[in-house]
Write a protein that binds this DNA or RNA. Structure first.
Lengths: 343, 343
DNA sequence: CATAATAATTGAACCGTTTCAATAGATTAT
DNA sequence: ATAATCTATTGAAACGGTTCAATTATTATG
């Protein structure tokens, strides 16, 4: 293994000069710079990350902590496709700044905080990205209080102020309802995301406001507590369709859940988009390729990933600003929604 | 920040003893152990990963290098769901051994090897996991030659011997063909994965052997070079169905591709499973929830992740064995395939 | 009882960088 | 000619652990 000492010896300078070259090449004379440069190539030198990090207290790594049990696996609220898009976004900006993403699994929620604490305590990462933000999220309180750099993908109802990037879920819901009422729908059901997640609260507010704005009363029967998977969508849709007066439109927790709901509608011999309109959330790549294609409230995950990483960098660099970015979702209209047809 | 010195002082012992406690508690007397233990809790001490790693040359990190451009993103051949399952598998075993996964994006294939080199050179990771194994994969040659610990998810046609975990794609194809011919199909088309990937070669061998075993000749028109996305499946299926004598069964590159093919079949007013049988590859979670549900050759991604990580650990620990594990895929029969009905 | 063996602890060297005060040499100002 | 300034380089002290030969205390052996 080549060390900075080998380079110094080979180039006939002191290690201090090589270090200068590494960190600020301007500091060394042209001739010396050339000599060091060529020796580095020749001897295939890569400065030790550990030694660097020990001295500078910088790791150029960002931590991400999914919960992974042997069977189950919930990194976050965004589903597979969404999560990977987000990760790609994070990673792309990270790589541009020679950062990497360190993924450390926690076996369950009980170990979660410990894992964050260890990651920071051991100096494994410079900062953290939080996903799947919950109500009264302890992670936010913990990290804020300890003054550890982080960004969250999502707002929370905690007392402290913290940096986040979030999608305006309420506004998305309002758009969806405005669109549906515009099509003549009045019986608009809603399969909610998981209870306890902040996005659930926010979207609910949007649902309430959207219904009120359109002069519609909320029918408790039309609101079903759901989840992010097909099974939940399917079961919830069946519940809704079993009602004496079934809804004519259903807004779901996310696209995957919407697929399940569509399935339920179809197995009853009804036609999605004509008999029942269905709206998803996220706009994963499958939404456009589904049969019929899915109308959905799109979150630009890739860009959210960019924004999260950029925000985290500005937090890490100690700027006094606290990034709090809201992203507007977009309603993408496809075939799963259509005009209300009076029977 | 608490250091080992603080603990030593507080507990009234030398730092050597604290170090012993950290690495092999048996070495220190019961009484001393207790004292150190309580001081560590009290002072919230976490040993610095950098300092440790500098001395021991161990990082307890495993590297993974996806290719991420601002728009595109190909980590590997497995699609979203598959990749996450694999990652969950890796991460779970990693976490059990207090390892983390370090994900570092390379912007393109040209930068790929450099990224691997840097990761190892800087001592960022103890080993690497390779995915999307290609023909004459330079990564394998490079890492083998440099004696860097790694495992690959897939065999390759390189001259050197290396550790891998792989699914027997050929056997999977044979099973699929045996099953289809058993249903009476004789015109069996095949949409291949991306050219250049080793899994493409292996599955092709399985296709050839399977056809031969069933006494069927290979019709060049029935073989279409495909890809892992819906668009490719859709276009390829259209090509096949446009033939004067269209196939009655289509085996596809993966499930997502199969979804595209199903779409093509359906838009022509044909019924999947009756008029045309379709078989996917992977068995992602959607396969079972698709309409009609997809018959597919299942790869147990989660378990493959386990095996990859375990193999990598045995390579890292310097055992003389070279793990080379073959996993049998399984044919999962669902609704997208059915008996051949003579017209 | 002396000696050998065992157990517990210590102290210092070392891992490979960064950092910064000190120095040498060259250039400019007085 | 001397002092002041600037540029390029040096050398040594950190950073926070691990490791291992040396030391001390304790127990077993002949």
């Amino acid at each position: 293994m080549t060390t900075i000492r080998d380079i110094a010896t080979a180039a006939g300078v002191s290690i201090g000069t090589v270090s200068n070259y590494l960190n600020d090449p301007q500091l060394v004379a042209d001739e010396t710079r050339e000599k060091i440069h060529s020796k580095i190539l020749e001897l295939d030198f890569h400065p030790s990350a550990a030694a660097r990090s020990l001295k500078t207290r910088q790791t150029r790594r960002i931590g991400l902590v999914p919960i992974i049990s042997p069977e189950d696996y919930r990194s976050t609220d965004p589903g597979d496709n969404a999560f990977l898009e987000l990760l790609a976004g994070l990673n792309y900006i990270a790589a541009e700044n020679s950062y990497s993403i360190l993924i450390t699994a926690a076996p369950n929620y009980a170990q979660e905080l410990k894992t964050y604490e260890r990651l920071i305590g051991e100096g494994q990462v410079d900062g953290l990205v939080l996903m799947g933000i919950r109500s009264q999220d302890e992670r936010i309180q913990f990290l804020s209080q300890k003054n550890i750099p982080f960004v969250a993908y999502g707002r929370s109802d905690v007392t402290c102020d913290y940096p986040y990037v979030d999608v305006d879920g309420a506004s998305g819901m309002e758009m969806a309802i405005r669109y549906l009422t515009g099509l003549g729908h009045r019986k608009i059901a809603y399969i909610t995301p998981l209870n306890g997640l902040m996005c659930t609260t926010q979207r609910w507010e949007g649902y309430v406001k959207g219904m009120a704005d359109s002069g519609l009363l909320i029918n408790k029967d039309y609101v079903v507590e759901g989840d992010f998977n097909q099974r939940a969508g399917q079961m919830s849709a069946h519940l809704l369709l079993d009602l004496p007066e079934p809804p004519t439109a259903i807004i779901t927790a996310n696209d995957i859940c919407a697929f399940g709901a569509m399935r339920a509608v179809q197995t009853r011999g009804l036609q999605v988009g004509r008999d029942v309109s269905i709206i998803g959330f996220d706009d994963i790549s499958l939404a456009d390729h589904w049969q019929p294609s899915l109308t959905t409230i799109a979150q630009p995950f890739r860009k959210i990933g960019f924004a999260l990483m950029q925000s985290l960098f500005s937090v890490i660099s100690g700027e006094k600003v606290m990034p709090q970015i809201m992203v507007e979702p977009q309603l993408v209209i496809r075939q799963s929604t259509g005009e209300y047809l009076p029977v």
